[in-house]
């Protein structure tokens, strides 16, 4: 077996290995969002998270933008706090009035987090990104309500949350309503 042939065959072997990796990364795992991109973290407090698990997807209108990073119990209030790692490109895009809810895909499917985004005002975006806000004259729509909204950045807490629907509670509620009619 001469050297040249061996070199070619080894090259083939390595290329095959790399091709397998690329195929696994692109086709099997969605490399676009789940892993290699930079992320930022948001927190959200819930009353009940149902059966939400770490690594559950976080979706906006059905599109995955991040994953659940960890679930802890708030040390004082004893309610679950979910930390979400979300694609960096969406940092400073959502207003702090954005709401998060725990949803279920299908009847038996997994639970995931759905974000109903409220788009942050331009001035809020700028100040969130650390830029000087130049134009203070024009009032934004949010400010009309007298509340100064901010854009969500790394480490912020979302307060407007809807907890998971627990089947037993739903049935209980339904029966209670029926009974009162």
């Amino acid at each position: 077996m001469n050297t040249r042939k061996i070199e070619i065959l080894v090259g083939l072997f390595v290329a095959l290995g790399v091709a397998a990796f690329v195929m696994l990364a692109m086709k099997v795992a969605n490399a676009g969002i789940s892993g290699n991109g930079e992320t930022y973290t948001l927190q959200a407090k819930f009353d009940n998270i149902g059966s939400l698990k770490t690594r559950a997807p976080i979706k906006v209108g059905g599109v995955v933008i991040g994953r659940v990073d960890g679930i802890q119990i708030h040390p004082e209030e004893f309610v679950p706090v979910v930390s979400m790692s979300i694609d960096k490109t969406y940092e400073c895009q959502f207003s702090d009035t954005t709401s998060v809810s725990i949803l279920t895909s299908g009847i038996l499917g997994e639970q995931y987090l759905g974000i109903s985004p409220v788009i942050a005002s331009d001035s809020a975006k700028q100040s969130c990104l650390g830029n000087e806000v130049v134009n203070q004259d024009e009032m934004d729509l949010d400010d009309l309500f007298g509340v100064e909204s901010k854009a969500l950045k790394n480490g912020d807490l979302i307060t407007d949350t809807k907890s998971a629907l627990v089947l037993e509670e739903l049935i209980g509620q339904f029966l209670f309503n029926q009974g009162s009619e």
């Binding site: 990364a25 795992a29 969605n30 789940s34 892993g35 290699n36 995955v64």
Partner: peptide
């Protein structure tokens, strides 16, 4: 498969 498999965690 793509939504469940993560590059970092799994691969």
């Amino acid at each position: 498969m793509q939504s469940q498999v993560s590059l970092q965690q799994d691969i």
